[in-house]
């Protein structure tokens, strides 16, 4: 780092905070308050899912069987790996290892693109199979046990699938942008063990996006695998 730690600390402490500890606690609290609104934001979609799943369970099972479980599981693993590299990256920032921090953030970005790439393959499959809600939606009910399953109800499943994974993917894109910003700021030497709140908070955002996927994966992909035979 070109600048000494004392200079960085003086530069980083905003005048309305008593000390760096108070400043860091305030920023962490603020980030968690934002994540609280994000939980309620996704919560609305999870709630819609809950209502329609309770109403049209068998139609949801049929929709769920169109999911590629292996791509979904791989993406879950990719996100968990990205969370590990992010956690280690934040740790590197805490320990004044800017080069290691930048390297781990770049690995996190790579995993992020890996996730989006796999998701794009899945989206393409659903698109060509007419599993996108709208005028081109087409679904043959293939469950002899429940011939009364309405394709319109399966369309609701796919609407929620695209909305929930789409909103999640948008968060991934934003997350990749934020991590890129951390890489640039880290390269310019803006962080130190006294001041790394942006790294910590972008880390919180990244882990939150991972957390949402931890629930999306079983709820959308694994509703009732056994019926698939």
């Amino acid at each position: 780092m070109a600048t000494s730690e004392i200079q960085v600390a003086e530069h980083a402490l905003q005048h309305h905070f008593a000390d760096m500890e108070q400043q860091k606690e305030t920023s962490t609290f603020g980030m968690w308050m934002f994540l609280l609104t994000e939980i309620m934001f996704f919560g609305g979609l999870f709630c819609a899912y809950l209502v329609y799943r309770a109403s049209y369970y068998h139609a949801f099972v049929e929709g769920s069987q169109k999911m590629n479980i292996w791509l979904g599981a791989t993406n879950t693993a990719v996100l968990i790996c990205s969370s590990l590299s992010m956690a280690l990256g934040v740790r590197a920032a805490q320990m004044a290892k800017p080069k290691l921090m930048i390297a781990l953030m770049l690995v996190t970005i790579l995993f992020g693109f890996g996730f989006l790439g796999i998701k794009a393959v899945e989206y393409h499959e659903h698109w060509v199979n007419h599993e996108f809600p709208g005028p081109n939606f087409h679904f043959e009910t293939g469950d002899p046990e429940h011939p009364a399953t309405d394709p319109q109800h399966t369309q609701i499943y796919f609407s929620l699938y695209w909305a929930m994974t789409g909103l999640h993917a948008l968060h991934m894109v934003i997350g990749i942008g934020l991590v890129t910003w951390i890489v640039i700021a880290g390269y310019r030497g803006l962080f130190s063990p006294e001041y790394y709140s942006p790294v910590e908070n972008v880390g919180l955002y990244w882990h939150f996006v991972d957390l949402v996927w931890i629930y999306l994966f079983p709820l959308l992909y694994l509703i009732s695998h056994k019926h698939g035979g």
């Binding site: 962490t28 609290f29 919560g43 609305g44």
Partner: peptide, 19 residues
């Protein structure tokens, strides 16, 4: 800090009110 923990518990609590 405890304040952060309360924030997280509150978010789960509000989510269950919604559900």
């Amino acid at each position: 800090t405890k304040l952060t923990m309360v924030t997280v518990v509150a978010s789960i609590f509000w989510l269950f009110i919604l559900f």
